[in-house]
Write a protein that binds this DNA or RNA. Structure first.
Lengths: 247, 247
DNA sequence: TTTTTGTGCGTAAAAATTACACTAAGACTT
DNA sequence: AAGTCTTAGTGTAATTTTTACGCACAAAAA
């Protein structure tokens, strides 16, 4: 939960929380959204589930409450247990968080910590999230994630494994703005898969799926020759994803 | 939980249960192990998690407690929420289960039902499980599953989808006895994927992975020519699975 | 002994993947 | 305004992978 967010009320599930690994893509790098607790401690956005609420809806609501953005692609990837998470706090963390507690009354959050945690990853357009940041959230390059609270470092790692594994069936384009260049798409795949593609072959492959619409406009403001902009034909995209997209 | 099994004690997690879809393979068919509540009602094997227990261990223990078998390959595939499962009972089911209750005292199980359920699937050697059946368990052909309690029909469906999706990285051989023929392996793949393979090409492909050990023995008692028996080289198998096995 | 069924190994055809080189457009420099 | 530089955009051939299929032989059944 976000510091200062409402206490879980009686109609939430007590022993389970939802944790979200929110992926964004910017400057050829994969990023994760982190939530700031104090000058040192960070965690993933998280929240609780209402008793009458489907899990997927809860995940969606949690993201909306914490980041303000809606209509995000969310995918459940793993459920974490592993006993008493209180054990996971270092002495230093504990002290800092307790300090925080007296100010913000988050004792319940910390010391009646959920035991089970359902992990979701989200694919979002980086540009859509940045404006809503209040300073207590921050995008963090995936290779430079600091030590996080709870087992959130493990979660990010597993989310990335799941992301790579599911790639064939994932609407990966949700990580891009609505209009994008083929180059951006290629960089995205290259970043996630940590390999390179031949530009011509990548172009050919993508086009063979027939879900890209070449727009009449070109991207302006770039260095050198202006590339064409493309858009997703959502219907065809979904069909293609059903069958899986090879790479 | 199994009818008549111990009440959840204070050191179990109350709001979460584990449900297991146990796959077996016999007579060229994929089967699932079902648990009998009474003459009509069936469910998947299920159980609770101790507060200090890792989820994977809990799943393993649950299967051991319910079926007696150990050292099973278990894979978490989805976590189910969806509100009040009590709503899922039909009037008839409710009556039968309440009758049962008075005899067996399982009221708690039914009406303080876990809200969240972590689904695992298991791959087991069909031959290893049959002998332990007491009559309250039964293998059921996947295409002939009756209406089950809770949302267990949905779970089986999703487990199968996950099984197919994960196939490249799964030790699918765990569904076969230790020594098996190539034909059996092929039938297994064909059954799961619902397609056929060319016998010679399948042979060639499997052999190219180098994790099969051709045994000197042949399978006896079969009609016609005796096929060779093969065994898995576990170490090489795991390596191959890391990279994924194509088909 | 003959028939039936399935194994085991090969080769040929088809399909998918990979490698590779030039021209054009816009931005920047002088 | 001309020249330079960087990136966009495109097709074809070589290679590898996948698929199709022929045939000899072994074992069990008739």
């Amino acid at each position: 939960m976000k510091p200062g967010s409402p206490q879980p009320s009686d109609n939430t599930i007590k022993e389970v929380s939802i944790d979200c690994v929110m992926f964004g893509f910017h400057a050829d790098e994969l990023k994760v959204l982190l939530l700031k607790w104090n000058e040192i401690d960070w965690s993933l956005p998280r929240g609780r589930i209402f008793k009458s609420e489907p899990i997927a809806e809860a995940a969606s609501r949690v993201l909306k409450e914490t980041t303000g953005i809606q209509d995000v692609f969310l995918q459940q990837f793993h459920t974490f247990g592993a006993a008493d998470r209180y054990q996971n706090y270092t002495v230093d963390q504990k002290n800092r968080l307790l300090d925080n507690k007296s100010k913000e009354g988050i004792e319940h959050e910390l010391f009646h910590e959920s035991i089970i945690s359902i992990g979701f990853y989200a694919l979002v357009d980086f540009g859509k999230v940045t404006p809503n940041l209040t300073g207590s959230y921050q995008w963090c390059e995936i290779s430079a994630i600091p030590d996080l609270l709870f087992d959130h470092n493990d979660m990010i790692e597993l989310a990335l494994v799941a992301l790579r594994k599911d790639l064939r069936y994932l609407p990966i384009a949700k990580l891009l703005p609505q209009k994008f260049t083929l180059r951006e798409m290629q960089k995205l795949y290259e970043t996630i898969l940590n390999r390179t593609f031949d530009r011509r072959n990548f172009h050919k492959l993508l086009m063979s799926y027939d879900f890209l619409i070449k727009l009449p406009e070109k991207k302006t403001g770039t260095a050198n020759k202006s590339p064409h902009l493309y858009q997703i034909d959502l219907e065809k995209y979904e069909t293609a994803l059903q069958d899986g997209i090879s790479y």
